[in-house]
Simulated scan of single mutants.
Amino acid sequence: MTSVTQSTGMLTREQLFHLFDRFIFLTSKPDVKKRVAEAVQDKQEAVAVTTAIQEEIFLEMGVDPRFGISCLGKLSTVYENDLDLVIQFYKFLSKEEVACDEAELGEEEFAEKMLNQQKLQEQQLEMLKYMRKFHLEDQSAILEKLHQQIRNGTYESGTSMLSAEQIDEIVPRKASPQYTPRFSYLSDQHRTTNKKNLNT
C-alpha cells in the first residue's frame, strides 16, 4: 500500500464518479446504516459519519481526505459545463441527505420524507430534460443559479429545483439585459387599460 496521497490540483471526472458510486453503494449496506444510526444514538451528527465515510473512500483512492472534501466544494465551478457530472453530484448529495435522515427520523417520518424525495427527483428529471433544450452556455448559467440556490438553502429540500418559469427567466436575462418578463408587462398594461376604462 502506497503512503503517497494526492493533495493538489483537482479530482478527475473518473475519480469523482468512483467516489459517488462507492459512497452510494456503502450507504446502502445494512452495517453502514447501523453505523450511522448508532452514531446518532450516541448524540453525534449523522453528517459527521457520512463525511467520515467519504474520507475513508478518498484514502482508498490514494487521495488526501481534506483535499478530496475541498474538491467537492469546487466541483460545480470547475466542472460547470459538464452537465452529466453535475447531475451525478446532486444525486450523491441527495443520497447523503437520505442516509442522514434514515438515521435521524422515525420510521413513519422517514417514509414520508422518501415519498417527497421521490416526487422531487421526478421534478428534477423534468427540469434536466428541459435544460437540455438550451445551449451549453445557457445550461451553465442555469446550473450556476441552481448551485447558488442550493448553497444559500444549505441543501434543504426544494432548493435543488428550478421551475420552467425560473429557467426561462435566467436565460433571456442573461441574453438581454433589457429583458422584461412578458406576463408581468402584459399584466401592468392590462391594469393601465382597466384604469383608463374606469375613468372614462
Rank of each mutant, 00 (worst) to 15 (best):
79 Y>V: 11
109 E>F: 00
162 L>R: 10
190 H>Y: 11
170 I>V: 06
16 L>M: 11
134 F>V: 03
104 E>A: 03
161 M>V: 06
166 Q>P: 08
1 M>V: 07
134 F>R: 07
166 Q>E: 14
147 H>I: 07
173 R>C: 10
147 H>C: 09
53 I>C: 04
192 T>P: 04
68 G>R: 02
53 I>L: 12
53 I>K: 00
73 G>M: 08
189 Q>G: 08
166 Q>T: 08
165 E>T: 03
148 Q>D: 06
151 R>H: 08
5 T>S: 14
162 L>S: 07
135 H>M: 06
170 I>F: 00
19 L>F: 00
117 Q>R: 15
164 A>R: 11
85 L>S: 07
195 K>H: 12
104 E>W: 01
154 T>E: 13
22 R>E: 11
90 Y>K: 05
163 S>E: 06
174 K>Q: 14
17 F>H: 08
134 F>K: 10
75 L>R: 12
106 G>L: 02
165 E>W: 00
48 A>I: 03
27 T>W: 01
1 M>G: 14
155 Y>L: 09
103 A>N: 01
199 N>P: 04
185 Y>F: 09
94 S>Q: 07
8 T>G: 00
10 M>I: 15
197 N>T: 15
43 K>E: 03
38 E>Q: 14
100 C>F: 02
7 S>L: 05
46 A>H: 02
59 L>D: 13
10 M>C: 04
41 Q>G: 03
143 L>P: 07
91 K>W: 11
13 R>A: 09
152 N>L: 12
2 T>C: 08
26 L>M: 07
33 K>P: 15
197 N>G: 13
41 Q>W: 04
42 D>T: 00
19 L>A: 01
38 E>H: 03
160 S>I: 04
56 E>V: 00
151 R>E: 01
63 V>E: 03
33 K>G: 09
11 L>M: 13
